[in-house]
Write a protein that binds this DNA or RNA. Structure first.
Lengths: 248, 248
DNA sequence: CCGCGTTAAATGTCATACAATTCAATGTCT
DNA sequence: AGACATTGAATTGTATGACATTTAACGCGG
């Protein structure tokens, strides 16, 4: 079969869209092998490099994976939640950094969603969620931890909480919200006093979750949200003051 | 400058990651122009097709856009909420269809998040949110509406509710969750009785929002969630019955 | 000063060749 | 006969060079 393309837009885009449409429609099942690059370039009447550019576009979206060698080729990928997390996180991170979203707005979004998950997690959390959170909390109490490592542990702690809701779709959605804030949090969390306060709140969160105390968990998360916003406000005040001094 | 690459993985992947890292780190600012393909192939000591494959990967993620002609080239894209929203919908849709996520799980995620927004929306909604929801609700009561149009209106209604929370980050996250479910909802909502029940619930939601009655709004949304899950269960029972008959 | 063609720079596309990788068939030795 | 090395073919990855297309800027003439 030979498929014609309109010369309107770039060929590699059209080819990528044609293949993506087939994948979404299901006529290319998960795990099935696409025609070889030579066959595709024949089918679309384009050169092999052009086909390859189209395939790279799809590969960048995790829609296909390629293997070399005999009986190699491009295969339709089953998009796992883990794969999707990554894209979600980088996109959300860039969205926040590129669109001048203030920390208060980002915090509100993140904690609003997280508290909603908390209600479910209080009912469904399992031992391994608590174990992960306990381990991270221990790390956070280590004073020698670097700022970035502390934030990374903070993220892991909260993601375990979200996972406790036992709903993979929720975990996927929240991954972006929680993880995307890490760069912002890196600017905030600094001194030992702040850390102590945060780990104390984490203690409350963890024990509330352990006791399946949904209301207590929600209060603790709300307190953490309020404290985070306070810290953000301080950071901004310092920054504004510095700017005023610089411009003077 | 010449950058060395390890021969471990594919070159185009490494180049794409190197450039992406620069964008995320901010050393390539939004709107700035990347070196030309010839310069990049020189910098990384690879051929131009390889550089192009790397750029196509980045273009597929909306990280860059390219323009032809003099003073053309590849430019760092400002990721808009609209762009990101597109990608999130296709990803979320594929996730749901490829991973056999049951409707209950998807519904739970969607309404859990939406109820969280509702609490904020009850406090912050403005007249134009109510106006949009009222208009959509009127459409939904028109019996001649097609199934798809009804669902589209349903989505618009709920997006207006989410927008009422007055938090763009929240709107972005929720838009994906609500919209990605539309294909699933299309299979559910069918007959006039179901529609009447749904619009009645929408009536309750709207008036609760109008009266800034957060608790009532939450109850109404919970009822709608429960009803949706019921409908989904019916659909599945019918489907299973049909399958059993077919295999018999 | 304005309009218009020319030109140069950049991406888009093509054709071809070769390298690297993987699997399978084949053949050989024990 | 069976295990193991060898070869070969299929496929993706990369390189090279060329041409086509598009676009902005420049210079020239009116």
């Amino acid at each position: 079969m030979r498929t014609d393309l309109s010369p309107e837009r770039d060929l590699s885009i059209q080819i990528a869209e044609a293949i993506r449409a087939e994948i979404i429609a299901g006529s290319l099942a998960v795990g099935s092998r696409l025609p070889s690059e030579a066959e595709l370039s024949d089918k679309f009447s384009v050169s092999r490099p052009t086909v390859r550019e189209a395939l790279k576009r799809l590969a960048a979206q995790n829609l296909i994976r390629t293997r070399r060698g005999a009986s190699g080729g491009a295969f339709v990928n089953r998009i796992s939640f883990e794969d999707a997390y990554e894209g979600q996180i980088t996109t959300a991170t860039l969205l926040l950094s590129m669109n001048d979203v203030d920390i208060e707005t980002a915090c509100e979004a993140r904690f609003t969603l997280e508290r909603a998950c908390g209600t479910l997690a209080a009912a469904r959390r399992e031992e391994h969620h608590l174990a992960r959170m306990t381990a991270e909390l221990e790390r956070q109490k280590d004073g020698s931890l670097s700022g970035e490592a502390f934030c990374a542990s903070d993220v892991a702690f909260h993601r375990a909480l979200v996972d406790g809701a036992g709903n993979p779709v929720l975990s996927y959605q929240l991954a972006g919200a929680v993880e995307a804030m890490q760069p912002l949090m890196n600017m905030i969390t600094v001194n030992a006093v702040d850390r102590a306060r945060i780990t104390a709140l984490h203690d409350r969160i963890l024990s509330a979750l352990e006791n399946r105390d949904a209301a207590g968990l929600d209060r603790s998360l709300a307190d953490l949200a309020a404290y985070t916003v306070d810290l953000a406000a301080e950071v901004r005040q310092r920054r504004d003051a510095r700017r005023a001094k610089d411009s003077a």
